[in-house]
Structures are given as C-alpha cells and as structure tokens.
Amino acid sequence: MINKICESLRAAVADIEDGSVVMIGGFGNSGIPMQLIEALRLHGARELTIISNNAGTAEDGIASLLRDRLVRKMVCSFPRSSGSIWFERLYEEGEIELELVPQGTLGERIRAAGAGLGGVYTPTGYGTRLADGKETKVINGKGYVLETAMPADVALIKADRADAWGNLVYNTAGRNFNPIMATAARITIAEVKTIVRVGDLDPECVVTPGIFVDRVVAQEVQKHDAA
C-alpha cells in the first residue's frame, strides 16, 4: 500500500538537518507552502540554503526564517520585493550570502537537476555580469552560458489537491515553481489544501505525477487562515 500522507506538518519536516539545501515553491505569496515554512521554522534547522524565487516580505514565510537567522544563503531571482525588510537587513549587515540567478535560469537549473541533466546552455545573461566566470559557447552564431543543474536535499511545495500516491493538482497561478521543484529534491514534501481518494483526480489533469512526491500533508486550519 502506497500512502504518502503525513499526519502532521511537524512530522513532515522533522528530519530536515542543519545545513540542508531547501527549495521552497511560490512566486511572492502565490503558491507558497506557508504552513510547511512555519513548521520548518519551529523545527529550527540552521545554516540552511534556501532556493526560492523571492526572499519573503514582512514577517511572513521565508522572511520569518531569515528573521530567526536560520538561513546562511539565498538563491533567488528577485530578493528585493517591496517589504523584504529581513532580507535587506541581513544583506546590509553582511549576514547572508546571495546567489542571484535570472528567473528562467533558476527554473532551468532546477528542471535540469530533476531531469538528470548536468546543466543547460541558455542565451539569458550572455554578455552580462551574471555570466562572469561561467563557461560560454557560441552555437549557430548565438552566444550561450552554461548553467549547471541545481538539486536540493528537500523541496517544500504547495498544491491544491493530492491523493495518497502523491499526485498533485494546483490552483491557478499557484503552480509556478512547484512542479519543477518537486522533481529536483531528494525529499519532496507537498502542503495541500485537500486530500482526495486515489482515483478521484482526473489522470488527464494531474500536473505532478506522484513519483516526484514523497510526503503529502494537509493544511491545518489556523486561527488567521481558515481558508
């Protein structure tokens, strides 16, 4: 019997170790696994490398991991959204390392890791500062930059519905980085709004097949988040 359902958010993140590389899905606050992030914060693993498009705003999500000084390095494309006070503070203090990656390159490095590729040649960033020190190649007269695969120890992702096999469907633009991150980590943990019976998801519409997902955990109803 395959049953990937975890009984609690706490249990889902209990084995994340200090120094782990953790992917976190989401674009701004869309499709972000807020409850798994809070569970990770309470779990307290330190010296984390976080791979995510943004670096959190206000006191929420990734910003709360930064505030608690659990993060050593951020890999992201747009760390400086309005209200990214914790990232800006730590950056100014020199307390956090930043690897800035163009958004499409971030996605392709994640996808390459999940697809068993060593990397990809992308035209993005060719001739710019973000290609400094990287191998380049001219293919059919156009310049490309070699960007290597970027795997992770853990991916925390957010989906709308799941079954016990780990098949996932998403809500509107909430899918963003979640499906590709699911493929690229040793352990993929999905926070979902609803768990349905195996067989209830339309196989034509499954976005992430269960093979990529290790653990599924239902959102816990919170005082401020009854949705």
């Binding site: 494309s77 747009f78 760390p79 400086r80 990656v101 958004q103 035209p123």
Partner: peptide, 15 residues
Amino acid sequence: KFPPAVGGAMDLAVG
C-alpha cells in the same frame, strides 16, 4: 549596498 534583483528581465530581453 543595495541588494540586486533581476527577476525575468534577462530572459525577456533575449527571447
């Protein structure tokens, strides 16, 4: 002193 941010601008520019 100001953290850089690039987002999708470089991808759009080339594509």
